[in-house]
């Protein structure tokens, strides 16, 4: 169980990084914390010619606060978020999700950007950040652009990055003080990949009600306007107003027909909603 041979570089700046990722004669793979890529390399499922370590680039560890958002560099780790070393604008949602990712030894190296780009359906950030309506800030040969997280993942291990592009940072919108959120994942064992994820954000002051059913077989199911999941006004009490029928339809439309699988996802969503409704 040793990786196949590859070359390794650690560029100092973004220009150097982009120059390397544009190499067409090599299979170039970027490395951040390596907590998903490492096992794939050891199992020789991924056999790159060149690994480009992006952790020496200061811009990718940048943390910035604006009036309406917090911007976290791609190389910020789950533990950085869990420990509150980076600012939180989500009323504790992000640190709570971070502390449930894998194990502490993994969280000390695994990064938010790396997790998004790896695009494992069962990972936490892709579902959590889709519920919060975060954006991937992308840098490439033709400049910068941003993609909402719910459009970023396009399939298992596949994202909407063009050749030579990378995720530079994640922009997390600042939630209102009265915002309510819930995140629940079901795993066979603590720290293992999720079998089902439910996530909800209700931020009436910004007119936001979003829900996510994650850890499906492919991209998470995102309800950007989640009102159909509730009968009557969700303001009267999210948990009481939850109506599972719209969620069941969405699960069936996504090809989740197995009754146990469907029930797991419904329970995860229900528990997330219960959590958001708790005083």
């Amino acid at each position: 169980m040793k990786p196949s041979a590859f070359d390794y570089e650690r560029p100092a700046d973004l220009d150097g990084l982009i120059a390397l990722t544009r190499r067409e004669d090599l299979f170039v793979k970027m490395l951040a914390g390596g907590q998903s890529l490492g096992p794939m390399l050891n199992l020789r499922l991924v056999q790159p010619d060149l690994l480009v370590d992006i952790t020496a680039i200061p811009e990718l560890k940048r943390v910035e606060e604006t009036a309406d958002a917090v911007i976290l560099g791609a190389c910020v780790t789950h533990a950085d978020i869990e420990d509150g070393r980076v600012p939180d604008a989500t009323g504790g949602a992000l640190p709570r999700v971070a502390c449930g990712i894998a194990y502490r030894a993994v969280r000390n190296r695994g990064t938010i950007g790396g997790s998004l780009v790896h695009a494992d359906p069962a990972a936490d950030w892709i579902s959590c950040l889709a519920a919060i309506d975060a954006e991937a800030m992308i840098l490439g040969p033709s400049g910068r652009r941003a993609i909402p997280i719910d459009e970023f993942m396009t399939g298992v291990f596949q994202v909407a990055l063009e050749p030579g592009e990378l995720v530079e940072a994640v922009r997390i919108p600042r939630l209102s003080l009265g915002a309510r959120w819930g995140f629940h994942k079901i795993s066979r064992k603590t720290g293992e990949m999720a079998q089902a994820i439910g996530a909800i954000l209700h931020d009436p002051a910004r007119d936001v009600l979003r829900a996510v059913i994650g850890a499906t077989e492919s991209v998470p199911i995102v309800f950007s306007g989640a009102a159909p999941l509730f009968s009557g006004s969700p303001g009267s009490g999210l948990a009481k107003a939850f109506d599972a029928s719209a969620a069941v339809r969405a699960l069936e439309d996504s090809g989740i027909t197995d009754a146990v699988d469907r029930q797991l996802h419904l329970v995860a969503l229900k528990r997330a909603i219960d959590q958001a409704a708790r005083p």
């Binding site: 390794y8 570089e9 650690r10 560029p11 100092a12 700046d13 150097g16 120059a19 390397l20 951040a32 914390g33 390596g34 370590d53 952790t55 020496a56 680039i57 990718l60 560890k61 943390v63 560099g73 190389c75 910020v76 780790t77 533990a79 950085d80 070393r85 980076v86 000390n108 190296r109 695994g110 990064t111």
Partner: peptide, 14 residues
């Protein structure tokens, strides 16, 4: 911030 162990890594000559 960043992956433990990466804090003092010097860039390689690209």
């Amino acid at each position: 911030f960043g992956p433990a162990g990466s804090g003092r890594a010097r860039p390689t000559a690209v």
